[in-house]
Nucleic acid binder design. Sequence first.
DNA 1: GGCGGGATGATCT
DNA 2: GATCATCCCGCCA
Length: 213
Amino acid sequence: MNKGTDRTPLTREFFDRPVLDVAPDLLGRILVRSTDEGRIELRLTEVEAYAGEVDPGSHAFRGRTPRNSVMFGPPGHSYVYFTYGMWHCLNLVCGPEGMASGVLLRAGEIGVGAEMARKRRFSARHDRELAKGPARLATALDVDRALDGSDVIAGPKAALSVLRGTPPPRDQVRSGPRTGVGGDGSHQPWRFWIDGDPTVSPYRAHAPRRRST
DNA sequence: GGCGGGATGATCT
DNA sequence: GATCATCCCGCCA
C-alpha cells in the first residue's frame, strides 16, 4: 500500500450523496475489516451503483422487505446479502436516506492481512484473485449477514470501516454496464473500475439460466 | 486461457 | 416455484 495514504475515515457526508457520485469516488479507498484474528485492508478497484427503487437491478426495486431494510436507512452503513445459496455480497448504503441506493463492492487489492485472506480463499492461485469478484471479496474479508447494517464511518477499530486512501486520477476511472444485470437495468454504465488493475473481475454478460425440463 | 454447467438456499410472488 | 448483483471445477485447446 502507498506510503502517504490518507488514513482518515470517510464521513457521513461522503456517503450522503447520490449513488452515481459516491460509487466512482469509492475507487482507491481503503476498506478495513477488523476481527479477533486481526485486520485486513483492501484497496477498492471495482464497484457497481444500484439506484434504489427506480432501478430494476436493485434489491430495493420492489420496495422495502425484511432483507433489504438497511438500504432504506441512513447512508454510511453496510448492506450484506446472501445469494446463490452460497455467497455473500457487501454493499455500502448511499444517500439521500430513504432512496435505498447502494454500491456493490466488486473487487479490490489486499494490502494488509493477506495471510488471513489466503486462508479463507485457499483456492485462489494468485493474490490478485483473493478479492476479484464480489463474493470472493466478502469471503476474503469474512463478511456475512452478521455485518448487515454496520456503521462504516465509526473509525478503523469498527468491524468494518472505510478510509480515504488514495483515489486514482480521473482518467484512470472507467465505467461500463453492470455485471449480471439483465432487463431494463442492463444498459446503464453504472459499473466503475480502475483501468488496467489486475484485481478487477472479468465482465460477464447477463445470461438467463436455462429452464429445467 | 476459455468455455459450459452444476451447486445451493433465502427470499419473494 | 422462479429468481438471484456467483464461483469453481472439469474439460478442451
